[in-house]
Nucleic acid binder design. Structure first.
Lengths: 339, 339
DNA sequence: CTCTACTCCAAAATCGATTCTGTTGACAAC
DNA sequence: GTTGTCAACAGAATCGATTTTGGAGTAGAG
């Protein structure tokens, strides 16, 4: 059922029908009612494609799912997805999900989406220190928002979880528990939040008067196996660390395995603190002390920010940093007798 | 950059440019090359919206994410999402994700998507015994494919995991371990796979010569809390079951909690077998014996099936049932000494 | 009565592609 | 010389909406 056909069957012109359905003022109340009733009865719905062509709006935003880095798909992205969709329901945008295999492929997908104007704006996550995607989008003045920051000087709308804060809090907590040899098992160095975690970690060491040489940072791919391997290497040192801060829970899970393999017990022999509070964290042995951030709410909020960006609000006012919350369980050995 | 503008700047007509880029034969090789080079240099890309309007193809398929039933978003849907997207990459369709809050809302979202022709076909999961969505899509002859079956008589393309088989295998295994009072803590009765699980369970009981009155089935919402509550009620009976088959790992996790609360140990006092092999299953205490199905591959395959449906292949040839694989861990008590 | 203002609807242009139908010129066949 | 065929391109219609412009009818002011 066409607009033309529909207008014809109810004896009105296409323009009047369109204006009636879109709430224009120069349509009499009676006519509008008649059109609405007929549309409902005959099941007429304006074609989205026709409307989009005419208005030039894609009515969609794209969410670029980060390519699986090692392990399987990420927990936090699904949470974000739910939040994004929830926020989008209040608008007339719908959601196009874009996933890619590799980082190069990811960029190509983004380009294609944008250049073909499939989406009016995009949502990014897993930002990198120098992020090709962000640089490209900024240069083209294409609207976007990101979960995570980047080192590009131009401002853009973002919502980030404060991983400097979580690493600092983790480090302070471990120092408070008496640890002096604290290692940071960090996520890949190219990721922006990896750098933040390192900053927070080093700040806390400095603030506690520990010499800079005490800093012990290494990077691992985001898989349990990589975390395990990294921690194995750490334990083989002459003076192994007594505490581990992990940039991601997956790495922490690997750390737990490495400790177990070495006959040690997390929380007693070596303290472990993770980051992310993935569902498995609660079930690890020992249960993982970690940091939690509300990713669903973050997805919701960053979507609102994107919508405001599309409405013309400048990026400077659309930058938020949320502080994650410490979830104390057993792996850091600090809750003994408390639970 | 328009088709018209682009054609103009390179001194050709719009139709010739379009035919050149779309591989028509009545364009000389030299002209085609010239157009392609210019398109690359000037960054011309045909607008997807214009093309869609003209060709009448939405070039997109929709994936209806099941509304979160109780707990947070489902693990298996994200795996499917990855598989779907992977399969779609081989085609020119892209993916529109639709999520909904409730089942009623879900149906409305589907209707809107379909009636506005936003997508050419849809992918469903979490099918129900009588599934409003499937009935509606069938009646409209709208192409779709589902992960999961339904009781509607008309055939449609589906890929299902054989939950009758997994329940039967679970039950046989428990009987083999000497259990006689085996309960099925099942997912909500409206779900199709819930009914299949029940069938498999009852078949196994019958085959083992256990009287039908031995069957003990109850349903719970898909949350840990609901599973815990259900199992608490079971344990309070005069002759509590010695083994539990859970329709979903989340329920099994709840069962584990209920046992712990009752001072019992899963795998020793009561055997527990789950279903799904969610990431947490491995980390439960004791680690959960459960069934695993390759959901990523399933997403990939069901997408291929949908594409074939769009190509006109009849539904009868597009129905697959995959058998899940038992993952033996400790919660069923059958692996003692084996690991 | 005439002029202006206003309400309500219709006609036509427009968005950006694809595709059907012509048109031109070259060349061969008769 | 005429006709027919073919390659290679151009023109115009079309998809389904929105939006600008125009126009008929009515009412009120002078």
């Amino acid at each position: 059922m066409n607009l033309a056909q529909f207008a014809n069957t109810i004896g009105l012109s296409a323009s009047t029908v369109s204006r009636a359905l879109n709430g224009y003022a120069d349509v009499s109340a009676e006519t509008r009612r008649r059109v609405e009733v007929a549309a409902e009865r005959l099941g007429y719905r304006a074609s989205a494609v026709g409307r989009r062509l005419r208005t030039g709006r894609a009515e969609a935003i794209g969410f670029l799912l980060a390519p699986p880095r090692g392990s399987s798909v990420n927990f936090f992205q699904l949470e974000m997805l739910a939040g994004i969709d929830e926020a989008l329901r209040a608008t007339d945008y719908h959601l196009v999900v874009i996933t890619a295999k590799s980082e190069q492929d990811e960029f190509d997908c983004l380009r294609r989406m944008v250049e073909q104007r499939q989406v009016e704006a995009v949502l990014l996550c897993r930002t990198r220190r120098t992020d090709e995607r962000i640089i490209w989008l900024l240069r083209r003045h294409y609207p976007f928002a990101a979960v995570g920051r980047s080192e590009t000087p131009e401002p853009f709308p973002f919502l980030d979880i404060d991983h400097a804060a979580s690493a600092r809090m983790a480090c302070e907590r471990l120092i408070g528990l008496g640890h002096r040899r604290i290692a940071l098992v960090n996520t890949p160095a190219a990721l922006m939040y990896s750098a933040h975690a390192r900053q927070g970690y080093e700040q806390a060491l400095l603030a506690a008067g520990l010499r800079r040489s005490r800093a012990l940072v290494l990077h691992a791919e985001m898989t349990e196996a990589a975390g395990q391997a990294a921690v194995c290497a750490l334990l083989a040192r002459s003076a192994p660390p007594t505490a581990l801060i992990c940039g991601d829970d997956v790495l922490a899970l690997g750390a737990l395995r490495a400790l177990e393999a070495a006959g040690m017990q997390a929380g007693r022999d070596v303290a472990v603190i993770g980051c992310g509070d993935i569902p498995m964290a609660r079930f690890a042995t020992p249960p993982l002390t970690t940091f939690r951030a509300p990713f669903r709410a973050a997805g919701q909020r960053v979507t609102e920010m994107l919508v405001q960006t599309l409405a013309g609000k400048p990026a400077a006012g659309l930058q938020e940093i949320w502080t994650p919350e410490l979830v104390v369980r057993a792996s850091d050995g600090g809750a003994r007798g408390m639970q």
